[in-house]
Structure formats: C-alpha cells, structure tokens
Amino acid sequence: MSLYFLCFMLFCVGLYCLVRKRNIIKIVIGLGIIEYSLNLFFILLGYRTQGRAPILISEQELINTVDPLPQAMVLTTIVVGLAVMVTVVSLALRVYEKYGTFDITKIRRLKG
C-alpha cells in the first residue's frame, strides 16, 4: 500500500513539472517521469511475494511466479514511450530553430 502511494507521489512530481514549467525540455522530462511511474505501477500490481521470474527452467515446476501479463504490456509501453519522446524532442528542436528559444510563453508572443 505504501509502495503504491510512493509511486503516486512520483506521478505527482511529473504532473507538477508538466503543469508548472515553461521550458519545453522540462516538459519532456515531466512526460518521462510520468511514463516511468506508470510502468512501475503496472509491475507493482503483478508482483507476488517470494515469487520468481517468469522463465521456465528444466525440471522445475511452474509455481509461484510473478504475473507475466503486465510485464508483456509494459514492454510495449516502453517502446511507445521512446517513440513519443523522440518525436517531441524533434518538435522542440524545430521550435528552437524557428523562434530561437525553448520558452513556450515567448513562442506565443512572437506569433503575430
């Protein structure tokens, strides 16, 4: 229970960065922190106390493994997160080339 709550705190740090900061790179960092906390939350849900990794070893019975389904889903999520981060970084570089700054308020002012 306390682990879930700490994971939520990590999510909130990322959310604070996403809402409050004005630098685009900081916003990318906030997105990354949120993604990490979500991945960790999925894996925490599938953990079993004193369990073992879901890999078969010969002449051993498959009892007491951790849940393999969230691991398979988080594998997909990491890939999608990398794709999103790379796209956002390239967009930020394009903005820097056009306006000469990473500050989002300055971009709005220069628009007209």
Binding site: V89, S90, L93, Y96, E97
Partner: peptide
C-alpha cells in the same frame, strides 16, 4: 529506425547551427 532518427537529429542540429 533509431539510427536514422539519431542521424536526422544530428544533421538537423548542425544545419540549424549553421543557419543561426
């Protein structure tokens, strides 16, 4: 694909530095 992404970003940074 990821090598292409890295190459593209490196080339783009170089181009934009030259343009500035």
């Amino acid at each position: 694909g990821l090598f292409v992404v890295f190459l593209t970003l490196v080339l783009f940074i170089k181009e934009s530095a030259k343009g500035n």
